[in-house]
Design a protein around this nucleic acid. Structure first.
Length: 1166
DNA sequence: CTCTCCCT
């Protein structure tokens, strides 16, 4: 310590030359190796740019550690000059400092690599030579330099030997792998054929070895795909390690958001999805020479598609080699798909596993409604306890179908475990927090076994060492897709024989095992041989879209390895056409092209694209990302009251996407504030922080993609002052250092689990793991996050300004526009029902329930129409002179406040559920979003998308609303189209044009918000099946209504040959509804004076509208500057205003507030 | 009154 101080002090207060002199003099008396200055000098001399050891590197730190031990050892030698037993000393020496006992010249390395020329000269006594260089080490005594050099050589010998030893061991391990025997054969096969199939079971070593064999045989640019991200990372690590190339870059991985790839990378492990995106960018993938597709037998959507794409690429790239790797399953299928590609079968290396069939007795078999009976599972635990001595280690892995099943078995097993003190029970499924998931890797104390109760996550994704017993329920939950209702369905099935074998295999990885099957052997024989490939079970929207963008022709005739059902393809095409991604010829539209490039569902992609108009992209980005990742809300926290209260302020009564928006924004604030710990913040609220990190990555990618496709204006990067730039630089340096620190301390020892933590244990469970040496563990995710993102900027852009009321209302419209047609209406009797019995309906599916995780599930009243008096007064005003009967029917259920629910997915488990819901004003939503609107003659009756009927009482208001909807939709469409067209011709948008567009957009945003706020009373009704079949008047021979120019903007109204009436726009047909008994009464003319031109004559309401709109159009004047500003401000300046006089909370701009106040004052004055 | 699992 004192030495350090002295060194520092000297450095600070003495000029350099004098200092060196002092040190030289001191050095001769009392040399100090640990003086930091000396060390720096030595590093400068020896650890240069070209040196083997680089200054400041991990290697240099290791060297200094070695050096200290080396010195200690030498000093000790000097002290005990007595040398009783040389051999003993030698042994001690090698133990103490790990020096090689013998000096084998084979380990020698080329010293010139180590030592730069200058140093060499210095070391050999040339430092007296003339020149500046010689002065460099003049301050260091020659004998000390020689001593140091000796230490370096010792160190290098030592590390050389160490790595040679490692290498030899690794080589031996590698040659013991079953696949090693086939090394030459594989290389020859790949040389001779373009496609080769390598089939080998678990443990044969194919994934790690085949890429290395090929590299060694002279192939380069090898890509190896994996279905899972973690597999890419761990394989790259393993293969890098085997080739002693950990710190080099020959072996790397590349997954979304993370890559260790460099130009020097020869073998890259990447995900199937990522390779597909690369192929989408450049269809001939010139960057690769060899493509290895691993785990093809798993039959994921991506791998099946990838195989199809590869088959198409092969003739275009005759030099490209493709190797399919699979378990020894269904090999003929893969070989046959590639023109009888040669197959190499490699035996696996599993230990023998005893199979015991123990079918569940009839009375314990699960009935549909009851909980899973745990007795058959308990019997197996008992059997293990009886049969196998406690000192024989080996854990138990139970496979169940789902989370509810896990918890019911867990409960019973936990009781047994408490009783016997022989088991530690751990659940495992993907919705568990990552901390909880990691526990399955911890160790049980001696005499205790782990019992891991898992979903099929443990079948392939999570591999747990030390499992000796497997207990297989034989059940699995699988997602399928109902195209009619566009609904996902999660159902339980018997597993396939292939899955049963895979589950069994999990018992024999580290030693002989036992597999208990809770079904009969005859059941097993009756299982399907393989699981249904994903491509045959899921919606193919995204796939078809990607196929179209890759120019793969008609998806109906694409030669998939196994055809998906034709209906799935047809449904997808229809859907994409309906969404405007494909045109009538099934070609990609401009929006379709963009959607194909966005790595999200179509509905999410749509909201992103729509979000680029107006200035609401930031929240849209956040919502889109939030809806694309697993929910950050942990289930385990839902029944924790503390979590519930901590979550409360984050909840939005607008709906779940807005709660997620709040969560992210609040989290970013926590991240940006120096004092708070986001990990703690998340834990308190029961949030999985990983999901928030994923969101941050996603929203950044989305933004970049939108920018790449010219959907964004160049955002003016705020120029920072010098001070903040410096601070940022400093912070980044610190972060990099933390990252390195983490990488160094990487190997965390596995924790030993405690027996029976019984509910007391949870308090310490979530705590960060700190290292054994007491150093604070680095929150590496936080470090990576802060390196990757500019937190300040994120904070400013995403949470900088609170959303105003108008912004929120526009944002809701955008999100719902994206989600369309995923809209549901509340059942009209919901307000009379129990909270848990709230029912909703979509066009294609009735009787749906909001998912219990939704805000609307816990607060259903948000969606209820207030049983208000207010609404009735609106209705009454306009209806004095009409017949009572009709009125009553129309007035029933009239309200200005009906709401509909946009949802992200429709999922059926026990019941059909709406997942991720948000609310939207019903009438405005329907009028602005519906694909088809059909109206009666007076427009009071509107049928939306052929299933929702809306009835208004006031025909004037009805007309106004519809014509305004038409105007807004056409304007919106036009602006979006022009924005999309920018993608093709950048030069087109010149400054002036841009400014005009900007103004139009502002105006549209302003008007949309205004529109969403309009207060018109109406009733809503779902049409019965019979009604939907007899909706239209049909083709008309007599034109009953004249065309009315100007009612719906400038559109031409043409007779609709199918529905009858007039087709005004692609989405609006006027006066086509059958059974409109009120036609004549509503069309009666009454005298009216035009306030604009003074014309006085009899009009029907619609004629009046027509006149008015054309009259106003002629007389329209340019808007005042003030008005313009007001419009531009809509997305920024609307704010909450509470008016004391009318006792209302209003959402208004400052101008509007002024006007509002003025109105009150004029009222009171008069 | 609750959800198999991956991935761009």
């Amino acid at each position: 310590m004192s030495v350090y101080w002295e060194g520092e002090w000297v450095r600070l207060f003495f000029p350099e030359k004098l200092r060196h002199k002092m040190e030289r003099e001191r050095g001769s008396r009392e040399w100090d190796w640990s003086c930091p200055h000396t060390r720096r000098r030595l590093e400068d001399l020896y650890f240069g740019e070209r040196g083997y050891i680089k200054a400041g590197s991990q290697e240099s730190k290791e060297f200094w550690l070695f050096f200290d031990r080396f010195q200690r050892f030498h000093n000790q030698l000097k002290k005990n000059k007595i040398n009783k037993d040389r051999e003993f000393e030698d042994e001690k020496k090698s133990k103490v400092i790990d020096l090689p006992k013998e000096y084998d010249p084979r380990y020698r390395i080329n010293v010139s690599i180590v030592l730069s020329r200058d140093v060499e000269r210095a070391l050999h006594g040339h430092h007296r030579e003339k020149g500046h260089r010689s002065r460099d080490c003049a301050d260091l005594p020659t004998e000390k330099l020689a001593e140091f050099k000796k230490a370096i050589l010792h160190y290098l010998d030592f590390t050389q030997k160490q790595s040679f030893g490692k290498l030899a061991k690794l080589r031996k391990e590698r040659s013991n792998l079953p696949i090693f025997q086939y090394r030459e054969k594989i290389i020859h096969m790949v040389r001779d054929h373009q496609v080769v199939v390598v089939a080998g079971d678990t443990g044969c070593g194919k994934s790690t070895q085949v890429p290395q064999y090929l590299l060694a045989a002279g192939f380069g640019h090898i890509a190896c795909t994996q279905p899972r991200r973690i597999a890419c990372i761990s394989l790259a690590k393993r293969v890098g390690f085997e080739s002693l190339n950990q710190y080099g870059s020959k072996v790397g991985y590349q997954i979304r958001f993370e890559s260790s790839r460099s130009p020097a990378t020869k073998i890259v492990f990447l995900t199937e999805g990522l390779l597909l995106r690369q192929i989408q960018k450049d269809s001939e993938v010139p960057q690769y020479q060899v493509l290895i597709v691993d785990e093809v037998h798993e039959r994921h959507l991506h791998s099946d598609f990838l195989l199809g794409v590869l088959r198409r690429i092969l003739p275009l790239r005759p030099d490209l080699k493709v190797i399919l790797m699979s378990a020894t399953i269904n090999i003929k299928l893969f070989s046959g798909y590639f023109d009888q590609a040669p197959v190499l079968q490699v035996p696996g290396r599993l230990f023998p596993i005893q199979v015991i069939y123990q079918p569940v007795p009839q009375e314990e078999a699960a009935s549909k409604t009851e909980k899973l009976d745990p007795r058959p599972f308990l019997r197996v635990l008992q059997a293990i306890d009886h049969k196998y001595p406690v000192d024989e280690r080996g854990d138990l892995l139970i496979f169940l179908s789902g989370v509810t099943e896990i918890s019911s078995v867990l409960e019973a097993v936990q009781v047994y475990a408490t009783h016997t003190q022989r088991w530690i029970v751990l659940p495992l499924h993907s919705t568990l927090s990552l901390v909880e998931q990691d526990k399955v890797f911890d160790l049980a104390p001696p005499g205790v076994r782990k019992c891991i109760i898992s979903t099929n996550i443990a079948e392939t994704s999570v591999t747990i060492d030390g499992v000796r017993f497997v207990l297989d329920s034989g059940k699995v939950k699988e997602m399928s897709f109902d195209p009619k209702a566009k609904m996902q369905r999660l159902q339980e099935f018997w597993i396939s024989r292939a899955s049963a074998e895979q589950r069994k295999g999990r018992a024999g990885r580290t030693g002989p095992g036992v597999c208990y099957r809770l079904y009969a052997e005859s059941d097993y024989d009756a299982f399907a041989p393989y699981p249904v490939p994903e491509i045959q079970r899921v919606a193919l929207d995204a796939l078809v879209l990607q196929m179209k963008s890759m120019d793969l022709g008609d998806p109906r005739s694409f030669p998939f390895i196994e055809q998906p059902p034709m209906s799935s393809i047809e449904t997808a095409i229809l859907y994409l056409r309906d969404q405007g991604a494909l045109d009538a010829n099934e070609e990609l539209t401009p929006i379709g092209k963009l959607l194909a490039k966005l790595p999200v569902d179509v509905v999410i992609g749509k909201m992103l694209i729509l979000g680029t108009l107006f200035s609401l992209l930031e929240p849209v980005l956040t919502i889109a990302s939030a809806l694309s990742v697993q929910s950050p809300f942990l289930r385990s926290a839902t029944n924790n009251p503390e979590c519930a209260t901590a979550r409360k302020p984050l909840e939005s009564d607008q709906g779940d996407p807005f709660t997620l928006l709040n969560v992210f924004n609040e989290w970013i604030q926590v991240k940006s504030s120096r004092s708070s710990n986001s990990r703690k913040w998340c834990r308190r609220r029961g949030l999985e922080e990983q999901r928030l990190y994923e969101m941050a990555n996603l929203r950044r990618q989305f933004k970049a993609l939108l920018k790449d496709h010219w959907m964004l204006e160049e955002s003016g990067v705020p120029t920072r002052d010098r001070h903040s730039r410096q601070r940022q630089h400093r912070e980044r340096k610190e972060l990099h250092q933390l990252k390195r620190q983490h990488e160094r301390s990487e190997k965390q020892k596995r924790k030993v689990l405690k027996l029976q933590d019984q509910d007391g244990g949870s308090s310490s469970d979530g705590e960060e793991r700190s290292h054994a040496d007491g150093t604070e563990s680095v929150d590496i995710q936080d470090v990576k996050f802060k390196l990757r993102h500019n937190v300040e900027e994120l904070c400013a852009s995403s949470t900088g300004q609170e959303l105003s009321g108008s912004q929120l209302s526009l944002l809701k419209l955008i999100v719902c526009h994206g989600l369309y047609p995923q809209l549901a209406v509340p059942d009209s009797f919901n307000s009379c029902r129990k909270d848990s019995d709230q029912v909703f309906h979509t066009k294609s599916k009735q009787g749906i329930v909001v998912h219990p995780t939704s805000v609307f599930s816990s607060n259903p009243e948000i969606l209820h129409v207030d049983s208000g008096q207010e609404e009735m007064t609106v209705a009454e005003e306009t209806s004095v002179d009409k017949e009572g009967k009709k009125l009553n029917s129309r007035r029933k259920g009239q309200s200005t406040k009906h709401q509909i629910v946009g949802f992200v997915s429709l999922l059926e488990t026990n019941k059909p559920y709406l997942v991720n819901c948000m609310r939207l004003p019903a009438l405005q939503g329907f009028l602005l979003l519906s694909r088809s609107l059909d109206t009666s003659a007076d427009c009071c009756r509107i049928v939306c998308d052929g299933w929702m009927e809306i009835n208004m009482v006031d025909p004037e208001a009805a007309l106004r609303l519809i014509s305004e909807a038409v105007r807004l939709r056409l304007a919106w469409e036009k602006l979006l189209k022009s924005r999309l067209e920018k993608t093709s011709s950048v030069e087109d948008f010149q400054r002036g044009d841009d400014r005009r567009k900007k103004k139009e957009i502002d105006r549209l945003g302003y008007d949309l918000v205004d529109y969403m706020r309009s207060e018109v009373a109406y009733s809503m009704r779902r049409l019965a099946a019979l009604e939907t079949q007899n909706l239209y008047v049909g083709p008309q021979t007599v034109v009953s209504t004249p065309a009315l120019p100007g009612v719906f903007g400038n559109v031409d109204m043409k007779l609709d040959p199918v529905k009858g009436g007039y087709r005004a726009t692609s989405f609006l047909t006027y006066n086509c509804l059958l059974n409109d008994t009120d036609f004549y009464s509503d069309c009666l003319r009454s005298f009216w004076t035009c306030p604009n031109c003074g014309l006085y004559m009899p009009f029907t309401p619609i004629e009046r509208m027509s006149h008015q709109s054309s009259c106003i159009e002629e007389g329209s004047v340019a808007e005042s500057e003030e008005q313009n500003n007001e419009m531009a401000a809509v997305t920024a300046l609307h704010r909450n205003y509470h008016c004391d006089i009318c006792q209302k909370d209003l959402m208004m701009t400052s101008t509007e507030i002024l006007r509002h106040k003025k109105q009150h004052s004029s009222e009171t004055n008069s």
